[in-house]
């Protein structure tokens, strides 16, 4: 069975894409969960669809269109919610929809049928070309490097932003940097689960890891492992039953999340007895 799977190059690439994307996803997802910025991350991801449309319209690799677009979205949403007198969820909701609209119009302007549009929305890990694998890997390294350099600052703004400011940190700049890392993670995840479902893989592995860890680093390592586990498990099930890979990965993650919550309730019940 395993040999059968690895005989195909697309299957090897899919597996590597799943593993590499789990690294970015677990590390950044940890910040998303502890800082409770899931909604803003969803906003960045959906706004990024505008970048895919733009890339498609210009005839370049859509992933190259997503990088500047999602970075700009991260900075704009972050600044608007921090500095302007706009409620954060209003700012996020506006960008969310406008980004999608830009994408739809760009794709509509390009003559002809857009066959792989669906794969950007919902992911198709089985069609990852080797060039995209290199891009995913470089973004992984960049994310790890930035997180390592700013680890004490990121911990401070995640736990207690006010105390970080009192300690002399430039909290807004650090927050924007964190949002930019989320934007890059979205780019990494587009191939695997697609824009619509990125948010699930950013939050579920980290949420389960938080129940088990005593430090942020431990939580990151565990969420990388969970994320890889869900991706590979989902990939295998989708191969077995011939169903959509991205959606299967999300279902596996969602099921694990429910199991973890049930286990938590059950163990609390046992302790109370």
């Amino acid at each position: 069975m395993l040999q059968e799977i690895f005989a195909f190059e697309f299957m090897r690439n899919a597996l590597l894409a799943a593993l590499f994307s789990s690294v970015a996803c677990g590390i950044i997802g940890t910040y998303v969960v502890v800082k409770k910025i899931g909604f803003i991350s969803g906003g960045i991801a959906h706004t990024a669809f505008g970048g895919i449309g733009l890339g498609y319209y210009l005839g370049i690799n859509p992933l190259l269109g997503v990088i500047p677009f999602s970075l700009a979205a991260a900075l704009a949403i972050g600044l608007l919610s921090k500095k302007a007198k706009v409620a954060e969820d209003t700012a996020i909701g506006t960008f969310w929809a406008v980004g999608m609209a830009v994408g739809v119009i760009c794709i509509g302007l390009k003559p002809g049928y857009a066959p792989d549009l669906f794969s950007y929305l919902f992911g198709n890990i089985l069609t990852v070309p080797s060039s995209d694998l290199w891009m995913i890997m470089s973004l992984d390294l960049l994310i790890i490097a930035v997180v390592w350099l700013f680890s004490k600052e990121f911990l401070a703004i995640s736990f207690d932003e006010e105390y970080a400011a009192v300690s002399g940190l430039k909290t807004t700049a650090l927050y924007l940097l964190m949002l930019c890392l989320i934007a890059l993670t979205v780019v990494v995840m587009v191939r695997v689960v697609g824009i619509v479902m990125v948010i699930a893989l950013l939050t579920i592995p980290a949420a389960i890891a938080r129940m088990l860890s005593r430090s942020l680093l431990g939580m990151m390592i565990q969420s990388v492992v969970f994320s890889a586990l869900f991706s590979i498990c989902g990939l295998w099930l989708s191969f077995l039953f011939d169903i959509a890979s991205g959606a299967t990965i999300i279902l596996v993650a969602g099921f694990a999340f429910l199991l973890a919550q049930a286990w938590r309730l059950f163990s609390a019940f046992l302790r109370a007895r």
Binding site: K36, F159, D160, R210, R214, S215, G218
Partner: peptide, 8 residues
């Protein structure tokens, strides 16, 4: 504070 935050 968020008591669930994983920090010693």
């Amino acid at each position: 504070f968020d008591r669930e935050f994983p920090i010693s």
